[in-house]
Nucleic acid binder design. Structure first.
Lengths: 248, 248
DNA sequence: CCCATACTTTGACCCAGATCAAGAGCCCCT
DNA sequence: AGGGGCTCTTGATCTGGGTCAAAGTATGGG
C-alpha cells in the first residue's frame, strides 16, 4: 500500500498526508520513493505532549489521524491556542531548530514524520516540495488571520459559533449527514481547550453553548456530540459573510 | 544602482526588498537580472487603498518605504487589523487571484511590484525564490500566532505595551538611540488604527497610553513621538518573556 | 459497587473595557 | 483671523464576560 505510486494513490492517500499534500502528483516517482524511505511514524496518547515550546525540534511531519493543538503560554499560566492540527495538517519548520509553541495531542494521535536534515536535503532537490509547503503555509496564515478577527472583535457567542463552524467544516465526519440533512459531529476539544482557542474562560464557553442549544441553533447529545439542524443559521450566529462555503 | 549585482548589494539593498529578502545572494546573477526586468514601482498616498478584499489581485510585491495595513471587516463595520506591512515585508499570494483582506496605505507608500504571471514563471525556474518566500511566510505565521496570544489573553495595558515593543523593534528609526540610550520612534498609526490592531476601542488605547506615560514607562512629545527610557520595563509591561531580544 | 478524578453546568457577583458624551489641540483652507 | 475637519483626551456610566463557588455527571479503578 505505502509503495503504491499510481496517480490515483497520490490523490487519495490518507496514510501519509505529507506525500499527498506536500508533494502531490507533480514530483517524479523517484522523489516519492525517497520520501517513503525517510519517513517514520510516531504515536501519541491523548494528553501527551509532542514537543515543548523552545525545545529542539529535529523533525517535521503531518498528522495522519487524531488531533493536536499548538499553544502559547505566558509565565503566569495564561494560555492561548494558536493552531489546531487536524489530519493532513503539517507542523514543523525547515531551517529552524527550536519549536515556537507547545504541541499537544488532544486525542490519540499518529504523525508521519521526517527527520529534518534528510527532509531539507530532499526539499532542496525537489522544488515542488517547497512550493507545496509554501501553499500550505499561506493557507495557515490566512486561517490564522481569520482567527485574529474572531479573537479581537467577536462576542463570546459569535466565537463559539465560529469554532463550531470551523470544526464542522474540517472534521472528517462532517461528510456524514443524517437522513434529514443535519450536520453532525463530535467536539474534539474539552470546554477548557475551546476556551483557550477562543480567548474565553471555560465557564463562558459552557454558558454560550447552553445558550445556543436553548435557542435551537445546535442540539447536544451528551457533552460532545453536536447536531446542527441549519448550518446557515450557525454561520449567521458566527457573524460570517453569508456565502456559506461548502454548506451553501 | 539597480543593476549592481555585487554580493554587498544584495545584502544591503533597500531599493528592492524582494530582491534582498526573497532572493538573496543564493540565486544566479541571471535570475536577479530577470527580477529587475519584470519589477515596477507603485506609489500610494496616506489613506489610499492598495486593494480591497475580494478584488482581483494580479500582482505581488513588497514595501519599499512607508507603512501599509492588512485589515478584515465584518458587515456591521467591526474591523480587525491582521497585519502590519513595514519596509521589506512581502504581500500577495502566488497561485491565488483574490485578495483576502483590505490593504491600505497608512503613510505615503512605495511598493516594488511584480505582475503575478511572470513572477510565478520566474519562481518555477528559480527554486530559491519559493524557498525564501516559504521562510518569509513562516515568519509571518509565527508573528500572526504571537499576535493571537496578544489578542486572546492580554490586558489592554499589556496590549499597548506589546504594540509599542513591536514597533520599536521593527521601526527603522529604532537604530537611532538618543545620547542617553533611550529608544525613540514615531508611532506610524492613529489611535484608531492601534485599536483595530489590538481589538480595543480608541478611547481605551488613549487611556492606556496616558497611563503608561504617567507611570514613566514611556514619554510622549506631541501625540506620536515616543521615548522609551527603559526597554526592559516596557517588555515587562507587555508580559513578554524577559529575554529582551535585540534590547537585552 | 463505591469512590476518586476529571469534566461540565449553573448561579451570584464584580470589574476591565465598551459606550456615550464633551471638549481640547492641530492643521489646512479661505 | 476664523472656521471646519480631524485626531486625541478625559469623564461618567454601563455591561459582557471574568471570577468565585458549588453542585451535577461521566468514567475508570480498586
Amino acid at each position: 500500500m505505502l509503495n503504491d505510486r499510481s496517480p490515483a494513490f497520490s490523490q487519495d492517500c490518507n496514510e501519509c498526508p505529507i506525500r499527498h499534500r506536500a508533494v502531490c502528483a507533480r514530483c517524479e516517482t523517484d522523489e516519492l520513493a525517497r520520501l517513503d524511505e525517510i519517513k517514520y511514524y510516531r504515536r501519541f496518547e491523548a494528553g501527551q505532549t509532542v514537543i515543548w515550546s523552545g525545545d529542539r525540534m529535529d523533525f517535521v511531519g503531518s498528522v495522519v489521524s487524531g488531533i493536536a493543538t499548538l499553544t502559547q503560554t505566558m509565565e503566569d499560566g495564561r494560555t492561548q491556542m494558536v493552531g489546531l492540527l487536524l489530519p493532513s495538517d503539517f507542523v514543523g519548520r525547515p531551517g529552524r531548530n527550536a519549536a515556537a509553541y507547545d504541541v499537544t495531542a488532544t486525542t490519540d494521535l499518529v504523525m508521519c514524520c521526517f527527520r529534518k536534515t534528510p527532509f531539507e536535503d530532499l526539499m532542496n532537490r525537489t522544488p515542488h516540495i517547497a512550493q507545496r509547503l509554501l501553499e500550505m503555509t499561506l493557507d495557515e496564515l490566512d486561517a490564522a488571520r481569520e482567527w485574529m478577527l474572531v479573537l479581537g472583535r467577536k462576542t463570546a457567542r459569535e466565537k463559539i459559533a465560529s469554532l463550531l463552524s470551523i470544526i464542522a467544516r474540517r472534521d472528517a465526519s462532517i461528510n456524514l449527514r443524517s437522513a434529514t440533512g443535519d450536520v453532525v459531529f463530535d467536539l474534539p476539544l474539552t470546554r477548557e481547550a475551546m476556551a483557550d482557542y477562543l480567548g474565553l474562560t471555560l465557564e463562558t464557553v459552557s454558558r454560550q453553548i447552553s445558550a445556543l442549544r436553548k435557542d435551537g441553533v445546535i442540539a447536544l447529545e451528551g457533552k460532545r456530540h453536536v447536531t446542527v439542524p441549519d448550518m446557515t443559521r450557525l454561520l449567521e450566529e458566527a457573524g460570517d459573510d453569508a456565502d456559506g462555503g461548502v454548506f451553501a
